[in-house]
Design a protein around this nucleic acid. Structure first.
Length: 532
RNA sequence: GCGGGUGUGGUGUAGUCUGGUAUCACUUAAGCUUGCCAAGCUUACAACUCGGGUUCAAAUCCCGGCGCCCGCACCA
């Protein structure tokens, strides 16, 4: 049994992860979060919120998982996530049709069979009868982009600002074989930070520029300060470097092993269709090697531009000039009194075209539905005037840290898993960080004596009243109860013994050292709270 | 998706070759006990991946589905 098997066994036994729909045979790529798993996932997501919403002051939104066809068509997912695949009947290899000149097996020279598109999105329909096509979203980001204009206004038209979303994404994986590392329905936490493309510096960079980070640019792996990485153009902007560091801080805080964390740069041929530069935070797993858990991409203006073009709504920002510019401009002013009667129903469209034309020639011809239409001179005026321009419009660039919550969840479990031996028996401990641990403290009466039990229950209640998740247990030997808590990563255990009756104190046991400390009952809440 | 391997209580297993409804341990639960690291005793719960076939009889043999593991492909 390798660590993956041991961990997944523990996860099932103790209520972290269950295979979904197991009574019907199960289906690959889906997992249930059990009682402890759900709590731990909440803790992980809330820690993420602390980083991005509290510390960075970003805006959280929540958008539908069902996403209109048009959105994903514009974003490129409909086309880019679809591969036409064919299979050779002789050698049984599969090929992407678009990689070949003809649909013929390059080895056996015979035509491919079973040619079908492989689309990684789950299609669905909205409504009954007059339906609209839709997909389950492959990422949460598009929901942020499609409301950019409203969010930009909410942010009072200042850049940079960030918007985050935590939620489910869906990808119909061809072969989801890596357990919770490749799920068909998965949780992600994404931040989209909108920048002026002329200014990808970061206000917080100065404070963190001497911190180090482990970088692998596919040529070499080195530990650099962020300043060095930016100056040597290994990372191309301060902003991107900042979010690499933020990601590192978050992951380490969540309990990732520093030795099992690195950042790897995507080679140009592995960049996603929307990405300009991308770094993955990779976490090491014993069985699967380096796992991509966070993607930090410079998506440039790709998405906002695509949605602006497809929807006709300008998803843009303005850059105010320090000193307004005065420019002389010529402009065409259509004369609707003439245009209207002359062109009837076409007049409206002609007006729009005229207003966008640059008045250069005296002769104006307009192309409407392939028809060349001459516009008489008396249908418009050309005026020239001086205008004060205070701002210019541009499409913001997007930097996107995108976290695979389930993958991080699994890697934290793996990095926290320790197996030792105690009295010739295998002893397992999950050394979860207190902030991540689903249960913060066990509460035990040393023996099943009503005098101790009643005090224990009172302490248990007090802790819960103060927002500390407890686990009351009076069954089995004290050692067994400690072992149960160790296996699910509970950092503290409180034991009420006969001395408690005399001096109102209890022992608090530390999971990792097994050391005990005696403290007054009145100090318990403070003791635990200060360590979370 | 292709090929190979594999599937027994919550977990790990014996039994499969050579057909006769299932072994052991841990866990869990109830109780007795227990004065700090999975102690002990009693009792209890609990399984043959699913469907079809062969047979008097299938965990066992055959076929298919599903899951898992490995390789190829796919994905990033």
């Amino acid at each position: 049994m390798d660590i993956y098997d041991k961990l997944m066994t523990l996860a099932k036994r103790r209520g972290f992860l269950y295979p979904s729909f197991e009574i019907y045979g199960g289906v690959a790529g889906f997992y249930d979060y059990g009682p402890l798993g759900s709590q731990m996932k909440n803790n992980l997501e809330n820690l993420w919120r602390k980083y991005y919403i509290l510390n960075e002051n970003f805006l959280e939104i929540s958008t539908p998982t069902i996403t209109l066809y048009e959105v994903l068509k514009a974003s490129g997912h409909v086309d880019e996530f679809t591969d036409l695949t064919g299979e050779c009947p002789k050698c049984h290899n599969s090929y992407k049709i678009e990689d070949l000149e003809k649909p013929v097996c390059p080895k056996c020279k015979i035509p491919l069979e079973n040619i079908h598109p492989v689309n990684l999105m789950f299609p669905t329909k909205i409504g009954v009868g007059n339906t609209r096509d839709a997909f389950l979203r492959p990422e949460t980001a598009q929901g942020i982009f499609t409301s950019f204009h409203l969010l930009y206004r909410y942010a009072r038209e200042h850049l940079p600002f960030g918007v985050v979303q935590l939620g489910r994404g869906y990808r119909n994986e061809v072969s989801p074989r890596q357990g919770p590392l490749r799920m068909r329905e998965f949780s992600m936490a994404e931040a989209e930070i909108f920048f002026d493309p002329n200014n990808k510096t970061h206000i917080g960079f100065n404070e963190i520029k001497h911190e180090t980070i482990r970088l692998n640019d596919n040529i070499e792996e080195q530990v650099l300060t962020l300043e060095e990485a930016v100056n040597n153009k290994i990372i191309h902007s301060e902003a991107l470097a900042y979010y690499l560091y933020l990601t590192q801080s978050f992951l380490l805080d969540a309990g990732v092993d520093r030795e099992k964390l690195r950042f790897r740069k995507h080679a140009s041929d592995e960049l996603a269709h929307y990405a300009q530069e991308c770094w993955d935070a990779e976490l090491y797993s014993e069985r699967f090697g380096w796992i991509e858990c966070v993607g930090i991409a410079d998506r440039s203006a790709y998405d906002l531009e695509a949605h602006t073009n497809a929807s006709g709504v300008e998803l843009i920002a303005s850059r105010r000039y320090e000193t307004p510019k005065k420019v002389r401009i010529k402009r065409i002013i259509p004369n609707m009194k003439k245009l209207g009667p002359l062109f009837k129903e076409k007049a409206g469209r002609i007006k729009t075209i005229l207003e966008e034309l640059k008045p250069e020639d005296d002769e104006i011809n307009v192309n409407l539905d392939g028809e060349e239409i001459h516009i008489p001179r008396d249908c418009y005026e050309i005026i020239e005037k001086e205008e004060t321009i205070t701002q210019e419009k541009f499409i913001p660039h997007v930097i996107e840290p995108s976290y695979g919550i389930d993958r991080i969840f699994y890697c934290i479990l793996e990095h926290s898993f320790y197996e030792t031996e105690k009295n010739n028996e295998i002893y397992r401990i999950l050394k979860l960080k207190p902030i991540i641990a689903p249960i913060k403290t066990g509460v035990f009466p040393l023996v099943n004596d009503e005098k101790l039990v009643s005090i224990a229950k009172k302490i248990d209640k007090t802790l819960r009243d103060n927002g500390i998740q407890t686990y009351y247990d009076n069954s089995g030997s004290i050692g067994r109860r400690y072992a149960r808590m160790d296996e699910i990563g509970t950092p503290f255990c409180i034991t009420i013994d006969y001395d408690t009756l005399n001096d109102n104190s209890v022992t608090i046991r530390d999971r990792d050292t097994t050391k005990q400390e005696r403290i007054p009952i009145d100090n318990i809440v403070e003791y635990i709270s200060s360590r979370l």
